[in-house]
Structures are given as C-alpha cells and as structure tokens.
Amino acid sequence: MKRKTFIPYLLVSPYVVHFIVFVAFPVIFSIFLTFHDWNIIAPMRYVGLSNYIRLFNDTIFIKSLLNTLIFLAIHIPLQIISALVIAEILNQNIKLRGFFRATFFMPVIVSGVVVTILWQQLYGFETGLLNRVFIQLGFGKVGWLTDPSIAMPSIALMATWKNVGLYIVLFLVGLQTVPAHYYEAADLEGANHFQKFIKITLPLINPTIFMVVILSTIGGFSLFIEPYVMTGGGPLNSTISAMLYIYKQGFFYYHMGYAATLGFFFALLILTVIMIQKRYVEKDR
C-alpha cells in the first residue's frame, strides 16, 4: 500500500511542471519585465515606473482600448439580438432545423483567417460584392474598410457573422428549458407572440444572455487576426485593437518591457470587466 501514496503525485506532476514553466513563471516574470527595458538581445535595463507612465500617455494604446470598446459595443448587442431572433424562429417546430443550425454554425468552425480573407473581398471598395449590391440598389459606394468611422463597425459585423451560429445554438438550448405549459397558460390569457417573448422567454433565458455577454467580451478583447489581415490597424489607427498593438510593440519593435506592461495592464482591465459582469449576474440571480 505504501507504493500508492506517491502515485497521485506522479499523475499530476506533468501538470505542476507545466504550470510552473508556462503559467507561474510567466506571470511573475511579466511583472518583473514591466519595470525594465529590454529587446531580448541587449542586457536588461531597470527603468522604474517609466513603462507605466508611457502607457498612460500612449495615445495609440488608449485609442486601441477605445477601438476594442467600440467593437464590443456594436458586436455584443448585434450578436445577442440576431442570435436570439434566429433561435426563437428555429424553436417554432421548424422542419430542417438541423440543416439551418448546421449552416449558421459553419463560420464558427472555420479559421478566422479564412473568414477575414473572404470578407476583405466582400468589403472591397471598387469591386467588392457589398458595394456592387449597393450600386445596384441605387446607393453610393461605402468605404467599409477605408472610412475610419466605418472600418471598426465593419469588423464587428463580420465577427458577428462568424460567431452568431454558436450563440444561436446556445440560445436554442436555453429556449428548450422553458416549460411549454408557461406558453399554454399565456395562450389562454390571449397573449400574442411578442408579449410571450418579452414576459416569459426573456426572463427565463437571462442566464444564457449573460453567458453570451461574457463569452463575447472575452472574444472581443482578444481581437487580433481580423484587423491584422484586413486593415493592419488602419485607416488612421481606427481598427487597431489592444492585442494588435501589444503584438506590434513586442514582436515588431521588440520592446519587451513595454509590451509586457501593456499586456499586464490589459489583462487587469479584462479581469476587472469580467468580474463586474459576473458580479452583476450573481446579484441578478
């Protein structure tokens, strides 16, 4: 029986090693780096708080945070409303539900790079499909990716197209937990479809809505490949996301200390936002 006592440790040891090397050490080292200036090759130089001072005066970084915020402010409501409406329709005893669900889900499984390359063409100014349709309909051309005030909303729209399938399915699961007799009771009272949706469905799937908000917030904060491929952060830095800016500082300019400071600050910001959202959910229950 003596042999047994070390077996659990043997089983979890790969995890512990991995945790120390790829989680614990990086977190500590990241904090250490925020007080230094380093390009990996030259010796590290202690710079005190100057990375933090630089961060708060860095207009591009602040712009990138605002851009991320704009993205979330458009993406989350758009995503919830469209997913909810489509899920509600699919929940009406529709034939071929499996086919529709699988179709809406397709962009979810495909790499973001594919979706971005495809939409870059759809958004093209001269011969992009969307502008061709707009011209046919008698509207003017839209600078989907070239107009600084439209570029970020365009990316948010594309991200919604990519992810909405997942949220449709999540809402479908949520809708199916609503007991049928609630609706039957409402029918007896003569409630119409819209009333039933507002009074019965919405309150009961509240937990799913909050989950969707948290999931898309996390996803939105990681926004990187879409602006990287589509716009490179332009025009006029209007689509540079925080993640893209950190990437540029770290792996383009090799400002490791500063990039680590940005990453550290951004991570704290993400945790705060998620924390507030979760607190709000718990209170609501």
Binding site: V23, P26, S30, S222, M243, F251, G263, A267, L271
Partner: peptide
C-alpha cells in the same frame, strides 16, 4: 488568467 499577461514571457521562455 487572460492570456495577454503570459504571452510576452512565454515567448521569452
């Protein structure tokens, strides 16, 4: 833990 915090140190490792 958001991955943004470990990205740079992981690269250095």
């Amino acid at each position: 833990l958001p991955f943004q915090i470990t990205l740079i140190p992981q690269y250095i490792i």
